[in-house]
Amino acid sequence: MRYKLVDPEPFRLGEFKQKIDETHGIHPDDRYLKPGRIPHIWCPGCGLGIVLSAFIKGMDSMEVAIDNCAVVSGIGCTGRVAGYLNMDTYHTTHGRAIPFATGLKLAKPEMEVVVFSGDGDLFAIGGNHLIHAARRNMDLTVICVNNFNYGMTGGQAGPTTHIAAKTVTTPYGNCEYPFNLTHLAYASGAVYVARWTSFHARYLIESVKKCFAKKGFKFIEVLTPCPTGYGRPNRLGSGLDQMKVYRDNSEIRNDINPMEAESGLNGPIIVGEFVDREKPTFFERYTEGVLAKASAG
């Protein structure tokens, strides 16, 4: 066989560096953001920017060393978070951020490993990995941005879509029951479980800080508006309108049993720190229960 191939345009390092010089270093959070990656791809009114900012603020106030922290994402709008953070970041396959992070954490136990992903990624295609990582008490922080639909692919229904809600794949209204993510994380063994909305940025920062200070499987759910994918078909208005709903309908109930923590489309939204308990992590048990015996034997 002979080949006839095209000459692709080369990578222009100069142009890339020029873009960094022009755009990077202006914003106070820039030391946490990858040079040359902003502006981001998220829609106006999306809550992801707030969650990203809260994560940066939490990391900053806990003085977590940037080179001691890795962020792993799956696929979707939230999956893009990894690409904006200026640390070791891994954008993996759909649903598989948690097992990738598991391998990374076990190879580098001294590093903080954070999984940032969406509700569809973590609870539909990746649901099995989430419950098993929680069961093992793998030392990971999982931040789940829940916008109740598949935003990146155009607003399809998912495992968190409310009953009767309209999406492009539930044109007559959704007939499936949604997961209560906090209840599932708790029942699977998570040692820390919190739910906030993008309206509760300051509470969210405090939760992020707690996760950096705590060992084990930590889970934060953040409800966010998706005016493009979910807001429009359900007549929820703009991102700002959704923030008003979060303000008016949310009720902080720390220590409530997550089973009772509702988050309806129009009803009350229960937020707070639901679970904070202690349990040895996988690696602690592996070190004491397996490595110690194997090296003694």
Binding site: V72, P99, F100, G103, L104, K105, L106, A107
Partner: peptide, 11 residues
């Protein structure tokens, strides 16, 4: 997935 993660951890 875990094998890939561990490899990026240098193992």
């Amino acid at each position: 997935a875990a094998v890939l993660g561990a490899s990026w951890g240098g193992t």
